[in-house]
């Protein structure tokens, strides 16, 4: 069939021409000569109508296939020319240093504060604060500390000439909150506290704490446990278990010490946990009825829990930092790690 031969020869010629095409315009010329408005292939279109009916099907198929073929060949030729052009262009040394976008970092202590607050906010706690210079009432008396409790001595706490002091825990924030508001109260108090410890690898004159307080009509020790369990799982990971041991603090009764599974050994026992598999992470308990009375609450009608955790300790465990002094050196090689 004459028509089919013609189609084949146009495709073959176009193939040769494209193979020898050196520029974009060579390719364009091939395109114009074949499938362009006045192209040889386009000219075959009207002839298709004249094909006898019994051959129409076969011819139509061949025509369409050839057209697709031509389009693909032209496209391919264009792409390889473009690729070649790029290959010859300037080549970057991609291993040269990048121009860094300056991204700062929060101090690890602040990061822990943020993370703790975020976890407790999800449980409905409100984060709040207070001054660091405090009264004896807010820091000790209201918290049921016995008059001769050692923490009240100038050996342990920093005092000023007017009798006030640098708060030795963030618990005064609990007192301030309860004095200002009626129950229910549900707060966490992140902040800085001061104790007269000689600075070394595990002590400093200041440290950071987060304390929690939840007072309502029927808050129980079981609620405390679930709150701290949730915190531990969120902060250290789901596998962390929590155990509570009876303890003693003047401001809570019953008082508990809260241990989390040692994150270093997963509870098997190691140097960090002194082979116990547990790390002491929080002191807590049910708010002592005397504390409630001291802020004008009626312990017959409300009850609740309080807890406190050391931010340095949480941070050191989480990031495996061994020396507390790293926090106050503020060496940027340290700060950049978190």
């Amino acid at each position: 069939m004459e028509l089919l031969e013609k189609i084949q020869s146009i495709v073959a010629e176009a193939g040769q021409a494209l193979a020898s095409a050196k520029t974009e315009s060579d390719v364009e010329e091939v395109r114009a000569k074949t499938i362009g408005r006045n192209g040889s292939f386009t000219a075959l279109g009207p002839l298709m109508g004249k094909v006898p009916p019994e051959q129409k099907r076969e011819a139509g198929k061949a025509f369409n296939e050839a057209k697709q073929n031509l389009l693909a060949m032209i496209e391919h030729a264009r792409e390889s020319l473009a690729g070649a052009a790029e290959a010859g262009a300037q080549k970057l040394d991609v291993t040269l240093p990048g121009r860094k976008w300056h991204a700062g970092r929060k101090h690890p202590i602040s990061q822990t504060f943020d993370e703790c607050c975020a976890i407790f906010r999800r449980m409905g706690f409100l984060a709040t604060g207070g001054p660091e210079i405090e009264t004896v009432f807010n820091n000790f008396d209201a918290l049921n500390a016995p008059p001769d409790h050692p923490s009240r001595s100038p050996q342990d706490t920093f005092f000023f000439a007017d009798g006030r002091l640098m708060r030795s825990h963030t618990s005064p924030v609990q007192i301030r909150t309860m004095l200002a508001r009626k129950p229910p109260v549900r707060i966490v108090a992140p902040g800085r506290c001061y104790r007269r410890d000689t600075p070394d690898a595990t002590h400093g004159v200041h440290f950071h704490q987060i304390e929690g307080l939840y007072i309502d009509t029927d808050v129980s020790l079981a609620d405390l446990k679930s709150t701290l369990m949730t915190f531990a799982a969120e902060f250290f990971g789901e596998k962390i278990r929590v155990r509570m041991r009876p303890s003693f603090f003047p401001f809570t009764e019953p008082s508990v010490e809260c241990d989390f599974t040692c994150v270093m050994c997963g509870g098997k026992g190691c140097k960090v946990c002194k082979n116990t598999g547990w790390i002491e992470c929080a002191g807590a308990g049910m708010v002592n009825p005397n504390v409630l009375k001291n802020v004008g609450y009626d312990p017959e009608n409300c009850q609740g829990f309080a807890f406190g955790m050391g931010i340095e300790r949480l941070t050191m465990i989480k990031h495996r930092i061994e020396d507390l002094r790293m926090f106050s050196d503020n060496d940027i090689r340290f700060l950049a790690q978190f």
Binding site: C117, G124, L126, A127, T128, G129, R186, K225, S226, T227
Partner: peptide
């Protein structure tokens, strides 16, 4: 094991740490 009670006791706009 009791569920955590996520009770809102104050407006969160009072959060001073945020």
């Amino acid at each position: 094991d009791v569920p955590v009670r996520a009770v809102r006791c104050a407006m969160f706009s009072q959060d001073t740490f945020a």
